[in-house]
Structures are given as C-alpha cells and as structure tokens.
Design a protein around this nucleic acid. Structure first.
Lengths: 295, 295
DNA sequence: GCTTGACTCTCCCGTTAAGGGAGGCCGCAT
DNA sequence: ATGCGGCCTCCCTTAACGGGAGAGTCAAGC
C-alpha cells in the first residue's frame, strides 16, 4: 500500500505522525518537539522524506511522559526518568524534591489568595486600593559589625545619636565603610515599656574587615547576621520620630490580615537617616518583620 | 555637583538607577525592563547620556508594582491597574478573576501532590514506577449521531456487533464518516448486573450532517454530546473482551488513590476496534471516567 | 590634566514548552 | 494533470527578566 523507502523496516504497522497524534492525544507540534528533545524518537524516520513513523508500542511511553508532565516535572527531569533508567532511590529523591516544591507553591498560593482577599475587603470598605504596600521577601544574611544595647523607649534615636559619633570615628580609623545601610534589630517586642533591646548592625564588606583584628573594633563585634527566610517589608519615607509608633503596628496588622503569623524579631533599615545627615522628614526607613505561613 | 544636561530639571535630588535600585530592592535589569514596558518611567532621562534618573517620590509606585506582582498578576494587568486608573468595579473584577485563578491552581497542585505521593507509595511497595499511566484532562463536546440502548453484560460487544452493520449501512447511505472514533457512554454503574445502559456515539463533522434531516438518520439521533470538564483517561491496547472487566476498576482505583472522586459516567473510545476491522488483540480503547476534586 | 574604577548605556542571547505560519515536498484520488 | 491533505523544516512569538559584550560617563585620586 505505502511506498516506504525501506520495505523491510516498515512491514509492521507504522503510524504517521498525525495518526499517532490522534491516538495519543498529543499535538503534532509537541511530538516533533519531544523528538528534538530526545524524549520520544519515532520508531523510524524515512531517510528521503523525513517522515516520522511511530508504532503503537510507543503509546505507553508517550502516556508515561504526559502523566509525568502532569506531576509538574520539567521535560528535562522526565527525560532522565524515562531515558537513563535511574535507581529507585534516585527516583524517590526526584519525587520528594517535586513534592517539596509543590507544597511550597501551595503555601505561596494560599498566601497570595489571602492578599487578594485582603485587597478585595479593602476595596469594599473604602472603594480604593490600600495605601500601605507591603512586600514579602527573604532577607539575605549580612557580614557586619554589631553592637547590642538597650535604648530608651521615650526617644529611640537619642542613644543612637550618641553612639553615632563613636561609631563614625571607629569606622574612619579602620577605613571601614558601610557595605549596605545601617540596620537595627529589635529583639524585645513592642509592649516592653522602658527599654528596647536593640542590636545596631553595620554591614561591612568581608574583604575590608578580614585584616582588622576583632579587638581593635572596640565596642563593635564582627559577626554574620543571619538572614530571614521570609519577612514582610515596608519602606517608609518621612519623619522618623513622628511615624515610628504608627508604622510598626500598621505593618503587624497587615501581616495578620494577609494570612501570615508574626514571629521572631523586627528590623529597621536606615536607607537614609542620621548617617547620611538627612533631615528627619527625609529619612527613608525600611521596616522588616519576620513572618511565617499560618498552618 | 553633577553635570546635568538641564540644570533646572535636576535641582531636586535625583537618583541614578543604582541608588534607586538599592532603595527599592528591585534589580537594575528589572527597572530598565519596567521602563521599556511603560510600567515605571524614570522621572528624567538625560538626553545626551541616556542615564535614567528617578526620585524618591517614585518609590511608592515601584512598591505598589512589586506588591501587585506578588499577587500573581501579570505586568500587563499591573500596568492597567497603575496607569489607566480603573473604576473600583473594574479593579474588583480583576481581583476576583485572579482569586479564581489562584484557587484553581491550588486545587491542581493538591491533585498533583496526591499523584506524587501515590507514585512514592508505589515505589516503596514495589520498587518501581506504577505501570498504569492515567492522564487527567478535559474532554471537548462532540457533534454526533447517537443511539442509547441496553446491552447485555455477558457479552458486551455482541450487541454492538449486531448494530455495526446497521450503522455502517446508514452512514454509507448518507455519506457520513467518523469525524473521530466511535465512543460508548456508560450511564449505569458497574454493579448493575444484567444490562448496561449505553449510548453509542458516532462523532460527525457538523458540515456533513447539517443537510441530513434527522428523520432519515433512522435509529440515530443527531445531538451534541457534552464535554467533560475533567476526566481521568487511560488508553489500553489488547484483548478487549478479556481486559474489559479489569481495566475499569483499575482506573477507578487510580482515581481514588490520587485524590479525586468519581462522578458522572464513564466512556470508552474505540480508537481501533470493530469498525476498523482489527483483531481483538489489536484493539486500542481509551477509558474515560469523569472526576472531580475532593473538597 | 590624566587615569582609574565604578557606574551606566544599548544590544543580543538564553531561559520553558511549545504554538503559529510560511514555503515546499509527498501521496493519493479524481 | 490537478487538487487536497498531510508532512517537512525554518523562523518568530510567548513572560519576565538575567548574563554578558562593548562602549560611553562620572567622580575621585595623582
């Protein structure tokens, strides 16, 4: 019936790509793509016409590929599963990895859902979008000189201003510069009345400080400040003293409203503050609060 | 201090892209991309150097963009949110759409998770991947000539074979051809002993049949067979009579094992069967069972 | 005034998993 | 002989950037 280039190879029933596509419910484009990727080579390719010929025996393989694709695996992962026959242990490993990724995505989507619902509630109430824009992201660890101290609640910047001269002097002496803005880590929660337990963090370049003996850093201690796996961050510009008492509760409120729970410490990053000699009203402060998923 | 191309425009403090990137925690690449997309144009661009200059007043805007991005909205959607100030109703609509999409994704991911867990259990038990490859997908509606009848359970194909001649004759008479393979829809569940309530579906091209009066179709009725929003499908090759009793329970078992629930009817598609005059052992049958998410 | 190093610019390519279309062969029916 | 489907390869497109090349710019140090 057909005019195959090599009759011997084609005597069993070979399917052209269209028929195989109909049987397997996979588009022709996709089959060609899988051929290129090495995921599913046709049983035979006519040397002269380039026509791809498949067999029904290849149906289970394409079905397996499609089923694995539905698990969310990449074609590359699927290729290693169906081509280089892996040990059961390697397969388990791959699946467990995928399991973790899916769980992660579900959690993120649930948080996203809470945030969309929060915005919908906001619109219902005030007929506009909310005006505090909070971003959830991880915070990387920092190499830094730090100083843990207590500062009075009444005028939180007073102690910092006293320390400022001292810090600037020490830094000039050792030719150390800020690698990123100064950060405060607040260890005590907001309800503590008199004092806040605060760590002043001066991020430094690892290269600059490796030859400065710890002792000469005086009151400052060189350490690696751990990152935060997930933090709600809000950047505020304006009068630091006036806004401080309002901003943090606002942020904390956002966190619980958007389906997260508060945990750990919070941080304030001085993007533009005393060390840049800016006016209070021009300060730019970033508030970070560590959070976690609810469940 | 600086050498701006137009001093008047630059007397307020302008930030170069690097500093704005540091303040906003958005990479330079992304800022340039948003400029190109029209999401966030720099406050000023130097005509001679092409340098982008931003202001701190643009910080809230970029933060809003990032926050919206976290909801999973596309940049295009975000652009319409922040540029063409939409009515609250339009914003609500957009958010509700997004809400539905996220909910959908969560359900799909949970199903995916069940399937990964199923495969992990399989591997634990038999140290290999399962050998029944089930694919979940929607089934489109069909334009078809149908015939609903009861067939005996003892020899399910017998009635079909009796009908076959009649059907082929009617189709030849009206010059109608299969637009896709013959399908059976099984309305009775598997525990009904004596008879199966089955609809024989002959998919036809809408163009071919629109001038064939319904009456002339004889025992066949022209209708649109509804699609299935979600079906578990399994394609089996082999002896139809021998395998039939085994395959359907296998599929149903897979469905409950993988975190779905059975619902509605099941269908059998004859990709290669009696009408193609194939041997029983060469038949290719696709089993489809309608399913739904658990919750 | 010159150099150095950090910063910025545009342009181009790569990523995933295909889909769309152009232009050209192949095979079969009339 | 002429359609017609079917099939081929090649190229472009998607979303949201990241990486890197090669060239121009800025501020400071000598």
């Amino acid at each position: 019936m057909r005019q195959p280039s090599n009759p011997v190879e084609l005597e069993v029933d070979m399917l052209r790509i269209g028929e195989f596509s109909r049987l397997s419910q996979v588009t022709i484009k996709t089959l060609r793509y899988y051929d290129d990727m090495g995921l599913l080579k046709p049983a035979h390719i006519d040397r002269f016409t380039g026509y791809r010929y498949y067999t029904v025996e290849q149906l289970p393989r394409i079905h397996r590929i499609i089923a694995l694709k539905e698990l969310g695996l990449s074609l590359e992962q699927i290729a290693s599963l169906v081509n280089d026959n892996l040990s059961p242990e390697q397969i388990r490993e791959l699946l467990r990895l995928q399991q973790a990724e899916i769980r992660q995505r579900i959690q993120e989507d649930q948080a996203r859902l809470s945030q969309v619902e929060f915005r919908l509630r906001m619109i219902e109430m005030e007929a506009q979008m909310p005006d505090i824009e909070v971003i959830v992201r991880p915070v990387p660890p920092l190499r830094a000189l730090t100083l843990r101290t207590s500062i009075s609640q009444e005028d939180p910047t007073a102690n910092l201003l006293v320390l400022q001269g001292e810090i600037e002097q020490a830094m000039a002496q050792h030719h150390i510069r800020f690698a990123s803005p100064l950060t405060e880590i607040h260890y005590s929660d907001e309800f503590q009345i008199d004092y806040q337990d605060v760590e002043i963090v001066i991020p430094v370049d690892g290269e600059q400080t490796k030859d400065v003996p710890l002792a000469t850093a005086g009151i400052l201690r060189l350490k690696t400040v751990p990152g935060l796996p997930m933090a709600a961050t809000y950047i505020h510009r304006g009068d630091y003293l006036r806004q401080l008492p309002d901003v943090l509760p606002l942020l904390q409120h956002w966190i619980v409203d958007n389906g997260y729970k508060l945990c750990g410490t919070h941080r304030v990053i001085h993007h533009r503050g005393a060390f840049e000699h800016a006016e209070y009203a021009d300060w730019i402060m970033e508030y970070q609060h560590e959070i976690a998923f609810l469940d």
